[in-house]
Simulated scan of single mutants.
Amino acid sequence: MPPLSSVTQVGPNELARAAAIDFARRLVRHWQEALGTELLGAYAIGSAAHGGFNLRYSDLDIALVTAAGLSPQALDRLRSEAFELSVDWGSKVSVFWTNRHFSLGRFPPLDRIDYLDHAVVLMERECIKPPRPTLEDIRQYLRGAPFANWADGARNFAAAERLEPKDRKAYLRTLLYPGRFCYSWMTGLMASNDDAVAFVNERPPARLTVGLIARALECRQTAADPDALFSARRTLLSQIDACASLFAEGYDLPR
């Protein structure tokens, strides 16, 4: 038996990720019974797959590839089964789905990249590989609804007088997203918050306040409340401008 000093300690987030994958596998067995041969494959994506999973702040993203797609009624049934299996884990489940042609459903370009590069197989009857989104595909996607929705939320937080407990998770994500936007804009890839923050720290876009993003990452890693960061909320307005400038002015970060 090796000495205790040589035994690698497994952190709480690694244990949480293992528990999340275990729950996802059990859940997918229930979904297989419901969907039968319609379900071609089920996969963990998101932070449970590409890294940085956090028990408090992470969702459990599960991607389903089906033969012909899912009806709203079928989706509701799948979500209900997740809650029935575990209220705690079921509340974290976020379902991404498509048909075999990747022409229907909820499966944005960045999540397709995540699926192609990082997916953890939960079950697979048939391996379906969609065309890889190009860098320009990713950029067109980011400058659309993802940026607009994040910017709206960021402005709301910037104008708020207090941070409600129910909004802590959303606020922390809002602080972190500029790093993820810039990382994916420059690389066309999906990665963990840790990797995105490391990237923008090494190659900071003009006017982006990287220090605030790094503080938000530390808060996430330790599963702390982000209340101490609320005083910096108006910095989100300049973060919006920094991301908008990157999207509008060119593709290259300072070297």
Rank of each mutant, 00 (worst) to 15 (best):
F157M: 13
L85C: 06
T66S: 10
H101E: 14
Y57C: 02
G179M: 11
R155I: 00
K92N: 00
W89A: 03
F83P: 00
E84H: 07
A119F: 07
W185S: 03
K129P: 06
I113L: 13
C182D: 10
A151E: 08
L70P: 09
L85S: 06
A191I: 08
A119I: 06
C127V: 05
L189F: 04
A119V: 06
S91R: 03
G144W: 01
V93Q: 11
E161P: 01
L85Y: 03
V65G: 12
S103W: 09
E136C: 06
S103L: 14
D114Y: 00
L75C: 07
L189Y: 08
L60H: 00
R162L: 15
A74V: 12
N156K: 15
A196Q: 08
L176M: 05
T174S: 08
G179E: 10
R112Y: 05
Y177Q: 10
N149F: 01
R155L: 05
A160G: 14
I138M: 11
L85E: 06
V120C: 07
G153K: 05
A145K: 03
Y177P: 01
T134E: 02
E126M: 11
W185F: 13
A82V: 00
L116D: 03
R162V: 14
E81N: 07
R106E: 08
T187H: 04
K169R: 13
G69H: 06
A159E: 15
W89R: 02
L172S: 07
P130K: 12
S184C: 05
M190K: 14
I113Q: 13
V65W: 14
A151C: 07
V197A: 04
R77T: 06
S103K: 12
E164I: 13
R100W: 11
Y171F: 14
E161V: 14
L189N: 07
H101C: 12
S80D: 09
D117R: 13
F102E: 09
G179N: 10
P131H: 14
Y57S: 02
S192H: 11
R139Y: 04
W150L: 02
L64P: 03
F181G: 04
A82Y: 01
L104T: 15
P165D: 10
L142H: 02
L189S: 09
L78Q: 02
V65F: 14
G105S: 10
R173E: 04
S86H: 02
A68Y: 11
W185I: 04
L78M: 08
Y57I: 05
S58C: 09
W185Q: 04
E84I: 07
G153C: 00
E84Q: 08
P178V: 10
K169Y: 01
L85V: 06
D59A: 09
C127G: 04
I128R: 15
P130N: 10
A191C: 07
A68V: 11
G144T: 00
S192C: 06
P109W: 09
L142E: 01
G90S: 02
K166C: 05
A160R: 15
I128S: 12
W150N: 02
A148K: 04
L175A: 03
D167L: 11
N156G: 13
A148N: 06
Y171C: 09
D88V: 11
D137P: 03
D195G: 10
